[in-house]
């Protein structure tokens, strides 16, 4: 564990807390893309199938936290605050993302096993999971401050992971091409959002 990775994970946690706080405080999930949240839940569930494998207490607790909160957010959006969710704003076609990521995972993976292909699928899917949310923002043209904070925390998390990989490459000789390429694309998507947002 290094400084970049720990801070990145904490930013990731923070982004989820910000989102939960926004929904609970305003009792509304307006401006939040259910499709993006659904994709994140799929990402966590398919990536953490190795949950029984022990790496560290930190690792296990974080995995449980991410799976639990992502499903809880779906519950809040689809059941508890259902009335505040406007599906007509959330029109991105995620079928294509899911299909393309699955196909890529079947072709480009480290080993052709059930767990490994789904792990790879989750890496590819995470890279593009924010697209429905960005699409929604571009359609409505305006984001609540809190939604911007959410996206900022998520973007910071991704950016810090890039620094973590550079750090690990030099200190541990660590390499993970699949994660690097997907992560670079993911970070680029956020940078694009920040650039547009900053200019406004």
């Amino acid at each position: 564990m290094n400084f970049f990775r720990l801070t990145a994970d904490l930013m990731h946690l923070m982004s989820i807390f910000v989102l939960l706080l926004k929904i609970q405080k305003t009792r509304s999930c307006s401006g939040i893309s259910f499709k993006t949240q659904l994709l994140y839940a799929v990402v966590f569930v398919t990536r953490y199938l190795d949950l029984p494998k022990w790496i560290s207490l930190y690792n296990t607790l974080m995995k449980i936290f991410f799976i639990a909160t992502s499903i809880y957010i779906l519950y809040l959006m689809k059941v508890k605050f259902r009335a505040t969710y406007d599906p007509s704003q959330d029109t991105f076609r995620i079928e294509f993302l899911l299909g393309a990521c699955l196909l890529l995972a079947l072709v480009f993976n480290y080993s052709f096993s059930f767990i490994e292909v789904l792990w790879t699928f989750s890496i590819y899917l995470e890279a593009v999971a924010i697209l429905p949310q960005l699409f929604m923002l571009s359609r409505t043209g305006e984001a609540e401050t809190i939604t911007t904070h959410y996206l900022f925390a998520l973007g910071a998390y991704r950016g810090l992971y890039l620094l973590n990989w550079i750090w690990r490459f030099y200190t541990e000789n660590y390499a993970d091409l699949i994660v690097w390429i997907a992560g670079a694309i993911q970070t680029a998507l956020y940078s694009d959002f920040f650039y547009i947002y900053y200019k406004k």
């Binding site: 994970d9 995995k63 480290y110 992971y161 091409l177």
Partner: peptide, 10 residues
């Protein structure tokens, strides 16, 4: 691609 020994990142 390069195969990491195991997936230890989140």
């Amino acid at each position: 691609p390069t195969k990491p020994s195991f997936h230890d990142e989140l």
